[in-house]
Every structure is written in structure tokens, then in C-alpha cells.
């Protein structure tokens, strides 16, 4: 392990997973945390609660298709929804750097409120701290969220079985590239917008349609490749996807080719990956396509027995390659 925390430890890839396993899990070890899902499922006897927390530090605060506030609500709602839970209440804590324009904060709160309305959740408690200039970068938001897990839901990254199909709800890379397009130094113009959206309604619809959904996750930091690798690792199965079947917008491909990024590693904020029993696959794709956040839903691959813990991609020339997790932070490159 490195002797200092590097940016790469926070980028959703292997270093972060190692950090969690080797440090956080060791210090806080308990069976609920050890599942390493994006939320904790709490069995309180009468009810099952889903509980999650997340922190938002996106730079820039405003980007095409959203802002840090919308992201905070959607991200929290989605983490809860991916456990099959119905999101209910959210807390929001703000760390504000002195000097932040009032109007910016107001705009961010407005879009939080709007996203919360759409998702049907209430922001019920919060906190605000102001730090000296330089003590934080403009604004950080921390959230927690709770939701109710219906009695019969059993969704976890460890439920995938050989033969199951992998469904992706739409195009990948939109959020990451939209945010990057506004970042200093990389400036490029695009009409592309972040896909940032609350997915709880979509999840409710597919859970209604099938009882054979094994795993659900939103491929945020680290992208689709990281989520698939997490499933393969947690379920101890192999996953094979076909590169050609993964929907990617032309703009995303263009930006990725220019900067040397892999679209499979770029963050999404309004997509989900579902692993489902083969017999329900077709029905679920149809249901997803009826929702505006799932209109490009498609089957991209399947779960296999071997190699356990690995994700393979079929390339366009008919060969297969390993699809690995993002290692370290993605840096723009020219080589």
C-alpha cells in the first residue's frame, strides 16, 4: 500500500476497493458492512431499513444536466433504490467555503428540492459549516438516506448465478464526460448533458414486473467496468459482455478517444445495471424501455461459471479480453 492517500484512492477503482477492504473494513468490521453493498440493509424486526451515506465534491458545482445538489439527491436516492428499497428520508450537510455566492447556494438548494420532489423523498435534517477560504473547495455536500425494504426483496451484488443476463438501462459515460467538458484545462464544447436522475421509480417498476432480479447497481465512479467487476467478485461468478451491445453515444466515444479514456470506466449518475434470471429478461427490458430513464435499456451480456471473479468482453473481431476495474485515477493522456 502507498504511505499516503493519493487522489486515485478516491476514484472508485481498485485502490479504493483495497483501501476499504484493508483499512475501513478491518477497523469497523461487522456483517452488515462486510457485504460491501452501496447501502446497509438493517433488520429492525418489524421493518427492514436501507441506510446509506455519500459525500459530493464535484468540481465544477454546475455542469450541463445538473449541479452538485441534484447529484447529491439522485446519488443518495439511487443507492437506496438499488437495494430494492423505497427511498423515504434524506439528511443533507453542507461544508461551505467562505465567499461562495449566495445565489449559487440558492440555485443548488432549489435543484435539490426539485430532485427530491421528483424522487418522492423529503430532506428532513441537515447541518451547515462554513470554513475559511481554502479550507474546502467552494461547497461539499454530505447526505444520508433511509428507505424501506419491502419484505420480499432480496437484491444484492452477491446474488448473480451462471445463466443470468446482464441488462444495462442506457448509454454509458454521459455524466463523467459532461462534467469533464467543463473542467479547466480540458475545455471542449459539447451539447452533452449529465444523465443525473433519480432511478427509484424505474426500480419500483422493474421490481413490480419480476421477482427474479438478483443484483442492481448504479455504475457511478469507476463506470460500468467497476460495477460488473464488483458483481463478479461478490457473487464469485464470471461475466461476459459483448462490447458492441453496450450503448455509447458518439460524443462520448469522441471525447474518450481524444483524451485516452475508456468509456467503460467513466461515471454515470442515471443508469443501472441489473442481473436477472434469463426467463424474465425480455419482459424486464420492455418494462424498462417504457420509463424515460430506461428507454435505451438492452441486454449486454450474461453471467457464466468461469473465470470466477472476472469480467470478459467480446471484442468486435470476435476475440475476448479482460474488462478490468479502473486502476487509479483516469488521467487524460496523449499516448
Amino acid at each position: 500500500m502507498e504511505d499516503k492517500i493519493l487522489l486515485a484512492h478516491g476514484s472508485g477503482g481498485k485502490l479504493m476497493h483495497d483501501l476499504i477492504k484493508q483499512l475501513f473494513l478491518k477497523k469497523f468490521n461487522n456483517p452488515i458492512l462486510a457485504k460491501l453493498d452501496d447501502m446497509a440493509a438493517l433488520d429492525l424486526g418489524e421493518a427492514k431499513l436501507a441506510f446509506t451515506t455519500d459525500t459530493y465534491v464535484v468540481d465544477p458545482l454546475f455542469f450541463p444536466g445538473g449541479d452538485i445538489g441534484k447529484l447529491a439527491i439522485c446519488g443518495t436516492v439511487n443507492d437506496l433504490a438499488m437495494s430494492g428499497a423505497i427511498p423515504k428520508y434524506i439528511s443533507a450537510a453542507f461544508i461551505v467555503e467562505e465567499g461562495l455566492p449566495f445565489t449559487e447556494l440558492e440555485g443548488i438548494l432549489e435543484s435539490m428540492a426539485e430532485a427530491a420532489r421528483e424522487a418522492g423523498v423529503a430532506v428532513v435534517t441537515g447541518d451547515t459549516k462554513v470554513v475559511e477560504k481554502g479550507g474546502a473547495d467552494k461547497l461539499f455536500i454530505n447526505t444520508a438516506g433511509v428507505g424501506i425494504i419491502p419484505g420480499d426483496a432480496d437484491i444484492s451484488g452477491s446474488n448473480a448465478k451462471p445463466g443470468d443476463k446482464v441488462i444495462l438501462s442506457g448509454t454509458i459515460g454521459d455524466h463523467g464526460i459532461a462534467v469533464m467538458s467543463h473542467r479547466e484545462g480540458l475545455k471542449f464544447k459539447t451539447t452533452l448533458a449529465s444523465d443525473c436522475a433519480p432511478l427509484n421509480q424505474l426500480v419500483a417498476e422493474i421490481l413490480q414486473a419480476s421477482k427474479k432480479i438478483r443484483c442492481l447497481r448504479d455504475p457511478t465512479r469507476g463506470g460500468l467496468a467497476s460495477t460488473l467487476n464488483e458483481f463478479a467478485d461478490q457473487s464469485q461468478v464470471g461475466i461476459v459482455i459483448e462490447e458492441q451491445l453496450v450503448p455509447i453515444k458518439e460524443e462520448i466515444l469522441g471525447a474518450c478517444e481524444m483524451l485516452g479514456y475508456d468509456p467503460f470506466h467513466i461515471a454515470n449518475e442515471g443508469k443501472l445495471v441489473a442481473i436477472v434470471a434469463p426467463e424474465d429478461t425480455e419482459k424486464l427490458v420492455t418494462v424498462m424501455r417504457e420509463n424515460k430513464y430506461g428507454k435505451d435499456a438492452t441486454v449486454i451480456g450474461e453471467v457464466v461459471d468461469e473465470p470466477k471473479g472476472k469480467v470478459m468482453a467480446k471484442t468486435i473481431i470476435g476475440a475476448t479480453r479482460i474488462l478490468d476495474m479502473l486502476v487509479g485515477e483516469q488521467l487524460p493522456r496523449i499516448c
Binding site: 471484442t315 468486435i316 473481431i317 470476435g318 476475440a319 475476448t320 479480453r321
Partner: peptide, 9 residues
């Protein structure tokens, strides 16, 4: 070459 799996074919 690696990404497309050209060696395999």
C-alpha cells in the same frame, strides 16, 4: 492489439 484481442485470432 490487446484491446481488440488480435493475438487470439
Amino acid at each position: 492489439i490487446s484491446k481488440n484481442g488480435i493475438r487470439q485470432v
